[in-house]
């Protein structure tokens, strides 16, 4: 308990030192490149009493809608293709190409297709999460124990029984692992899409501040993005805890 207390004291001290150094640096240099914690805090309070929530809501909505499309579709595609070895064998070059390519970089194409509003960002998040979930589910289905399959087959299981009782549950840990990766990626995809072309959302707030060389605004938005990132990361680790619980139960 005591060591826990001292840990928090040290952390608080470190934070205080960092903020103090930043404040001193900002006061000493007149150029304003590094702004200062005081200015950033005032700006954050300013933003929080006004437009910030609308932008946060847009970014979150893009993430949630994109995930709601991409995750179930990816799981379904992975389960289906995982049970079709012949098709999977023939499609392999395409699968490898899609697996290799960083899909977030397709943002310009989607913006070209779907315009400046939320649609291209939703599709970007959906595309990225679809493939992450697809690859993980596909790998999960491939990893299903062959002996168990043979046993079920010998016991006269039908295709649907095989699927519901063995393949789907066995792939579950892989699916959750994919979800854990997909969550932070969804935030990255939404923000990248907004940074390229948007009228609202955290990414556009960031590029607006940058375009006006408003350093205080830029740092304020970065801090909000960091908080969003931490929230998403902790949601992802909740998912991971779920997976680990699963794996322990398996043993």
């Amino acid at each position: 308990m005591r060591s826990n207390m001292s840990l928090f004291v040290w952390r608080g001290l470190l934070l205080a030192v960092l903020v103090a150094v930043w404040q001193l640096g900002g006061d000493r240099t007149a150029t304003g490149w590094i702004s200062s914690p005081g200015l950033v805090a005032t700006r954050l309070a300013d933003l929080a009493s006004g437009e910030l929530w609308g932008h946060v809501a847009v970014t979150l909505a893009e993430m949630i809608l994109g995930l709601a499309i991409g995750v179930p579709a990816g799981v379904l595609a992975g389960l289906i293709l995982g049970r079709m070895p012949l098709t999977a064998l023939l499609l392999r070059p395409l699968i490898v190409a899609l697996y290799s390519v960083p899909l977030v970089t397709l943002a310009p194409l989607l913006i070209l297709w779907f315009g400046l509003d939320m649609a291209p960002k939703i599709f970007l998040v959906a595309g990225v999460s679809f493939f992450l979930l697809f690859f993980n589910t596909f790998a999960g289905v491939q990893a299903v124990d062959g002996d168990q399959q043979t046993t079920l087959l010998l016991m006269g299981a039908s295709r649907s029984e095989m699927f519901l009782k063995l393949v789907a549950p066995a792939s579950m840990a892989w699916i959750f692992a994919g979800l854990k990766v997909a969550l932070p990626y969804a935030l990255i995809a939404a923000v990248v899409g907004e940074m390229m072309a948007a009228r609202s959302g955290m990414g556009s707030l960031l590029t607006d501040a940058a375009a006006q060389i408003d350093m205080t605004g830029l740092y304020a938005v970065l801090i909000v993005l960091m908080i969003l990132g931490v929230a998403v990361a902790s949601a992802a680790s909740q998912v991971e805890a779920h997976v680990l619980r699963w794996r322990q139960a398996e043993r």
């Binding site: 940074m195 940058a210 830029l218 993005l225 960091m226």
Partner: peptide, 23 residues
């Protein structure tokens, strides 16, 4: 002591730093 600071920085989408670095 520093772990939470590192994981906060890690959680920030790194690409968001691009406009700052360009300035």
């Amino acid at each position: 002591v520093v772990a939470p600071f590192i994981s906060a920085l890690y959680a920030l989408p790194k690409i968001a730093l691009a406009p700052l670095f360009v300035i």
